[in-house]
Amino acid sequence: MKMVVVELRLATQQPIEIIDITEQVRKHCRDSGIRSGLATLISRHTTAYVNFNEREPQLQLDMLTFLKRLVPRDGDYRHNLAPVDGRDNAHAHLLGLFMNASESIPIEDGALLLGEWQSIFFVELDGPRTSRALTLQFLGEG
Rank of each mutant, 00 (worst) to 15 (best):
L139N: 11
G142S: 11
G115T: 07
P128D: 01
D88A: 11
M3F: 14
H28L: 13
S104Y: 05
G142A: 11
T40F: 09
R44C: 11
G110S: 09
L10F: 00
G37A: 01
T46L: 01
R129M: 08
L136I: 06
D31N: 06
L125R: 00
L41W: 02
A101W: 08
I42H: 08
E141F: 06
H91F: 07
T22M: 00
G37E: 01
S36D: 12
E103D: 14
S119Y: 12
V4K: 04
P72H: 07
Y77Q: 01
R78S: 14
I34G: 01
Q60V: 11
S104E: 07
R132G: 05
S32E: 00
A111M: 12
D85T: 04
Y49M: 09
P128Y: 03
V123E: 00
R132D: 04
R35S: 12
L94F: 06
H45K: 04
E124W: 00
E141A: 11
L94H: 07
S119M: 07
L61H: 13
N51R: 13
E7D: 12
L64R: 01
R87G: 09
A90Y: 04
N100S: 08
S119W: 06
L95W: 04
E23D: 02
E23L: 03
N53R: 06
T135I: 08
I18Q: 01
L41A: 00
L61Y: 15
P57N: 05
R44F: 09
L136Q: 03
P72M: 03
P15E: 02
R87C: 13
S119K: 10
D109T: 12
Q58T: 13
R87Y: 08
H79N: 10
Q118V: 07
D20A: 02
P83K: 06
L97D: 15
